[in-house]
């Protein structure tokens, strides 16, 4: 089986520097030697410094009574006031719960269903059937969130297509989207519809790349299909699954924002509001509580980082595969 080549692994093969004092000289020498190469990274570095690192300076507003008219330097320092406010805020507790629940639902279904789909698809070796099914499955990924959510809003309206089906089965006629108890389910299904086929592409490719000799050997040893799937195909695509898991865990709190923002409404805030929509409403969405919003954003960032590092470490331990 082909060994997985990991992003960070090769960079680590640079020989570690033994002595501290020599370090600086080495770097300068290296720069002089390779300056033509180093020039290439300058635009990229500028991009990341301006659009990723400068905003991190802006995190300081989480500790300020920030007023846009006064700017960062003239705003009053309030220390950890907003963080105290976060934890005593009853609404934030709800928001945090919603974020966790929806992120976990998306993470779980967004990983398990595509893998199952890819496994089912790989069993069908008829090309003229296989290809169109796959194309149909990933088409929704290319449809804009605005469009998807508009379709959802239409389908779930009081006299929408889906509502009619529900009513036929005895449910009460209502705007399903305005009922808080359905929002988690709706959000999960919408995300699944959008992303399932596209997420399955990498798994289908990985399944195809599993060494076929292993399958032949297993057949000779009398393994049935189920055993082969369990003992050959799944371990073969495990590195891919783990990578996707780590990636999705790191991003789980920040994705899905578009859909929620387009689908929720004041009547469903109690289940639909998540950290990113809450931050948005508090700040640019009209709330003007920039400091508080930045504090919530920082809180979210810290959790994401911890989750990413943790899941990366765990996957390194459990599956011997880590992202970096």
């Amino acid at each position: 089986m082909e060994e997985k080549v990991l992003a960070g692994e090769r960079t680590e093969s640079i020989p570690p520097k033994e002595k501290k004092p020599k370090k600086e000289n080495k770097f300068i020498k290296d720069f002089k030697q390779n300056w033509r190469l180093h020039i290439i990274i300058l635009p990229v570095l500028a991009f990341f410094i301006i659009f990723s690192y400068f905003p991190m300076i802006g995190i300081i507003t989480a500790f300020l009574d920030y007023r846009p008219t006064r700017g960062i330097f003239k705003s009053e320092w309030v220390g950890f006031k907003y963080f105290g406010q976060i934890f005593s805020d009853a609404q934030f507790a709800l928001v945090f719960r919603n974020t966790c629940v929806m992120a976990c639902l998306n993470l779980f279904f967004g990983l398990v269903i595509p893998v199952i789909f890819a496994l089912l698809l790989s069993e069908v070796k008829i090309k003229w059937l296989n290809r169109p099914i796959q194309i149909c499955s990933y088409l929704p990924n290319f449809v804009a969130a605005v469009v998807v959510c508009n379709i959802v809003i239409n389908f779930l309206a009081t006299n929408g297509v889906v509502t009619n089906i529900f009513v036929a089965f005895g449910a009460e006629r209502e705007n399903i989207l305005s009922d808080p108890k359905y929002f988690w389910g709706i959000n999960t299904v919408v995300n699944l519809w959008q992303g399932m086929g596209y997420a399955a592409i990498v798994f289908t490719a990985a399944i195809q790349n599993v060494n076929q000799d292993l399958h032949e050997a297993a057949v000779l040893d009398g393994a049935n299909r189920w055993q082969r799937m369990w003992h050959i195909t799944l371990p073969g695509i495990l590195p891919m699954i783990v990578t996707m898991l780590v990636l999705k865990t790191g991003l789980m709190f920040s994705t899905g924002f578009d859909n929620i923002l387009l689908l929720y409404m004041p009547s469903t805030y109690e289940t639909a509001d998540v950290i990113s929509t809450y931050t948005y409403r508090m700040s640019l969405g009209g709330g003007n509580q920039y400091g508080f919003s930045a504090a919530v954003g920082l809180f979210q960032s810290v959790i994401s980082t911890v989750l990413l590092v943790l899941s990366n470490w765990l996957s390194g331990k459990l599956a011997k595969t880590s992202l970096f």
Binding site: S13, K26, F31, F48, S52, P55, M56, T279, G297
Partner: peptide, 30 residues
Amino acid sequence: SKKTLWTKFISILILLTMMFNGGLVPTYMV
């Protein structure tokens, strides 16, 4: 993809942005 002393440092710098970002409001302010 090249290996120099600086590349590792810079790759970490870039990787970090994947985990940590300023968030909505700070980006807006920049």
